[in-house]
């Protein structure tokens, strides 16, 4: 049995008087200790997927489908049972640690808060434990750091503090929502390396949300590409980067500037990203896809499972896509 099993997850949020669909049916499995990346543009629903798992969606969100964690239905958890799940089974790391830490409380308060309030450990024992964890994430002088406030630390250090806090509860699943995007380039790779190492050494499953396909491939066993509130392709990370099956995945790979080659003009996918609620009939990507046929415009493809992954494209078998050139027929 998978650690995490998501089936037909749909989410809509109230905007003004209407409801806006943000997830249009997500299917994804994650084994214990496995790492999966969710890649997509802003607004594709990748953060929403993580928030649905962590049960952090806005109060008036309408959610349907199923999220099984170790066989338990996460969507049915309430009050104390929900808090136990959040406190013990999962942990989440957010994009910008500067705003995700309370600015008026010390690093120490933040780090021991979970252990003291949800695990009933003593403050002293908790402090001892988090100082060790700080050392593990590369912050040696933990005792001093505990007394500091978030504004006294750099973004990179704060993100390490966030990672230490996530590890403190010894979760089985780590949700990392663009954990390196808001950081300086020089600290990005450090933070990613720490997450990668710790997940592997502790056998923690990782769901890594990013818009960087190559970073995803470097960290995660598998990669899922999202577009307009759906998964359009899942594959082993290396396979996906080398042989993308969906035109959108190929477009994303092609849009990444290549440092070894000068080009006249950077590749870009034409048009603008579709939001989930804007999608009408047909494939959500059809209006931007060079290969769209009449079938693609008329009806919506399903996520078709195949050896090693799944792809949501009518023409997947007709196309041979090339990552570096964008896409060629």
């Amino acid at each position: 049995m998978s650690l995490l099993s998501i089936k037909d997850l749909k989410v809509s949020l109230p905007v003004d008087k209407e409801r806006r669909v943000v997830l249009r049916g997500i299917d994804l499995e994650l084994e214990a200790g496995e790492s999966v990346a969710i890649v997509g543009e802003s607004g594709s629903g990748k953060s929403m997927t993580a928030r649905a798992i962590a049960r952090l969606l806005p109060r008036r969100a309408v959610v349907s489908g199923s999220i099984l964690f170790d066989g338990r239905q996460v969507l049915d958890l309430k009050d104390a049972a929900l808090r136990r799940f959040q406190a013990a089974e999962m942990a989440m790391i957010f994009q910008d640690p500067r705003v995700h830490l309370n600015p008026v409380r010390t690093i120490g308060d933040f780090l021991v808060e979970g252990l003291v309030n949800t695990r009933g450990s003593s403050k002293k024992a908790a402090e001892h434990k988090v100082i060790e964890l700080l050392d593990e994430v590369g912050i040696p002088d933990g005792t001093r750091r505990l007394r500091q406030y978030p504004h006294e630390l750099s973004g990179g250090l704060l993100q390490r503090v966030m990672i230490a806090a996530a590890l403190a509860s010894e979760p089985r699943l780590l949700l990392a929502d663009e954990p390196s995007t808001a950081l300086d380039v020089s600290t990005q790779s450090d933070v990613m390396a720490i997450i990668d190492d710790l997940c592997k050494s502790r056998g923690m499953a990782l769901m890594f949300i990013t818009h960087d396909l190559e970073l995803a491939a470097a960290i995660c066993d598998r990669t899922a590409v999202m577009y307009a509130g759906q998964i359009v392709e899942v594959q082993g990370s290396t396979d996906l980067v080398e042989h993308p099956r969906h035109p959108y995945s190929a477009g994303l790979l092609g849009a990444k500037p290549n440092v070894s080659r000068r080009v006249q003009r950077l590749n870009a996918i034409p048009g603008r990203p579709r939001a989930a609620f804007e999608v009408q009939n047909g494939c959500a990507f059809s209006d931007r896809c060079r290969f769209a046929s009449e079938e693609c415009i008329a009806s919506e493809p399903t996520l078709k499972h195949e050896p090693g992954g799944a792809v949501r494209c009518f023409r997947a078998d007709d196309l041979i896509l090339n990552a570096t050139e964008g896409a060629v027929l």
Binding site: A54, A87, A165
Partner: peptide, 9 residues
């Protein structure tokens, strides 16, 4: 949101 994700009451 961070605090909620940690299962605090």
């Amino acid at each position: 949101e961070t605090a909620r994700s940690r299962g605090l009451t």
